[in-house]
Design a binder for these strands. Structure first.
Lengths: 148, 148
DNA sequence: AGATAGTCTACTTACCCGATAGAGTAAATA
DNA sequence: TATTTACTCTATCGGGTAAGTAGACTATCT
């Protein structure tokens, strides 16, 4: 399950990627626009800032901005940041491998084998989807939706 | 994250798939063999039985057996049973779709778009992997492992 | 009958998610 | 430089759920 934090983070970043890259957006506006509890969003944006994904400006006219090009921010990074490794099971993780205590023969565990496939497929999608490309996908889906 | 229940279930089923289909295996033996807390395993096997995946025999010489051909038991079924829908987000689920309250424009949500891809890839793997095919994969991996 | 082995319900424990509160700090502008 | 604007940070809380345990009960075999 994707946590609310990760979900809200993606929505917020997507909204920011849709704007003039130099015009900051306030927490409150972002929260209203995306239907996110403001204080909760605050926490999320702070995390993204400390991770180097967002920058912020204080005071009047301040708010949050993307710290990097939307082409260089991938969903994988965001999901890992909030929800940890993509692999369903630690022993199948690439970025955070931890062996499991209850596995007798390390290399030949069926669970690990299957879950490694899942993690690879997931990583391929999420690490291959940037904010920018997702924005494109949404735009295309939007056109299709209007067409009917 | 895969729950321990689902993980233990898969391990136990895999062990059962590796035996004479008519020779039951006791909870205690299964637990020892797979390093699973016996009382916890008890709960899991009971669930699998009520789901029609296992059968049981009571009394001396009793234990658990697969209720179906290992070719007809897929990981997707097991994971869904214990952990719910495969989709990371309810609005991307095929088997348990629930719209999200905070989505303004239903069809053109970036999160949903990306997560639908993830769920489709995951479903393809897990619904495509039977106990039997996984057993085969393990056997092959085992050979490779011995070769080094 | 007695031993064996699954069935079922009810806990307990610990952890974590989602959310909120409030005091603090930095920047902009009048 | 005083004031307003907005982000920064720590603490906390309620509720839910995962993992595991206990114990009484029931069915089957010898």
């Amino acid at each position: 399950m994707l946590s609310k934090k990760a979900k809200y983070a993606i929505k917020a970043l997507l909204a920011l990627a849709d704007r003039d890259p130099d015009e900051p957006m306030r927490i409150a506006d972002l929260a209203r626009r995306e239907q996110i509890p403001p204080k909760f969003l605050e926490l999320i944006l702070l995390g993204l800032r400390n991770q180097g994904i967002l920058r912020s400006r204080k005071g009047k006219g301040g708010g949050y901005l993307l710290a990097r090009d939307p082409k260089d921010i991938h969903l994988g990074e965001i999901v890992r940041m909030f929800d940890g490794p993509l692999a369903p099971v630690p022993c199948a993780s690439q970025t955070a491998y931890v062996p499991c205590a209850d596995c007798r023969s390390e290399a030949v565990c069926g669970v690990r084998l299957a879950m490694k496939e899942v993690r690879d497929a997931t990583a391929k999608i999420l690490d291959g989807t940037s904010l920018d490309s997702l924005r494109g996908q949404v735009a295309r889906a939007s056109l299709l939706d209007q067409a009917r």
